[in-house]
């Protein structure tokens, strides 16, 4: 049986993994390559590395980081942040990534999805969508870009459909409303997107407990869920999280 995936996410800035504390203060959490290995060893099904600043001068650092992280990583490895052209993507793949995640650049020029897919296959292209809906219904959630700073006027469900039609292999859906709140994923929004497309949907934003994952895999119809800070709040690692999910009847990769 196809299992639900737990994906460990590393936010990288200037070549180091960082984590926000109370949404503002950024503290250093360690070396990306080392943490990527630690997450894989602790049972994560995949590892995602997001260059959250993606500054031009940081590009060299990122590629070196990707190379080091990928060298001994034998689970799928996604890199995102600052991939704006097919050439950027190629450099990231050459450094050892299996998939790239594109966000603002795909909105700016949707052809990019197909261009990367043509060379590396659709399975290698994840379109990341940052969604905000406030009090509106899930169908009216709006796509934001530039790290959540700029509204686009586009509806999330429609953009997800277009991304699929243009050849995206997966959708990484982050609820900006839920992000950092630890009150659970936006299951309604995740289900709306998951039902609108045939490709897998990765839910992100809001995880605070194992029950939140049970909810998003059930009601939210997510195929995978991204976890970052949850590992700092009561759940020690993917293996422990999966053990709790298995007890709740969620199909997960165990032993791992």
């Amino acid at each position: 049986m196809l299992t639900k995936r737990i994906i460990a996410c590393l936010d990288v800035r200037g070549g180091r993994v960082v984590k926000g504390v109370q949404f503002v203060d950024i503290i250093d959490a360690g070396d990306p390559a080392e943490l990527a290995h630690r997450h894989a060893a602790a049972g994560a099904d995949e590892v995602v590395l997001l260059d959250i600043t993606a500054t031009h001068e940081g590009r060299g650092t990122l590629l070196e980081t990707v190379r080091r992280a990928a060298a001994k990583l034998f689970v799928p490895f996604t890199v995102g942040g600052g991939v704006r052209t097919a050439e950027d993507a190629e450099a990231v793949f050459t450094a050892g990534a299996d998939k790239v995640s594109i966000n603002s650049a795909a909105i700016a020029r949707p052809e990019l999805i197909g261009e990367i897919g043509a060379s590396f296959g659709a399975q290698a292209v994840i379109v990341a969508i940052d969604a905000r809906r406030g009090e509106r219904g899930a169908e009216d959630a709006e796509v934001y870009i530039s790290g959540g700073r700029k509204p686009t006027g586009r509806r999330v469900v429609e953009w997800a459909r277009e991304a699929e039609a243009r050849g995206a292999g997966e959708i990484l859906l982050t609820s900006m409303d839920a992000d950092g709140m630890r009150t659970g994923f936006d299951c309604e929004l995740t289900a709306a997107v998951s039902e609108a497309v045939q490709i897998p949907v990765i839910a992100s934003g809001g995880a605070g407990s194992a029950q939140h994952f049970v909810d998003v895999f059930g009601r939210g119809k997510a195929d995978a869920a991204l976890a970052a800070s949850i590992f700092h709040f009561g759940v020690t690692d993917s293996r422990e999280l999966k053990a709790q999910l298995a007890q709740s009847g969620v199909s997960v990769r165990l032993p791992c």
Partner: peptide, 12 residues
């Protein structure tokens, strides 16, 4: 039931 494609992830 609808079957998603591609088949992505860990299966046995």
């Amino acid at each position: 039931a609808d079957l998603k494609s591609p088949h992505v992830g860990w299966n046995s």
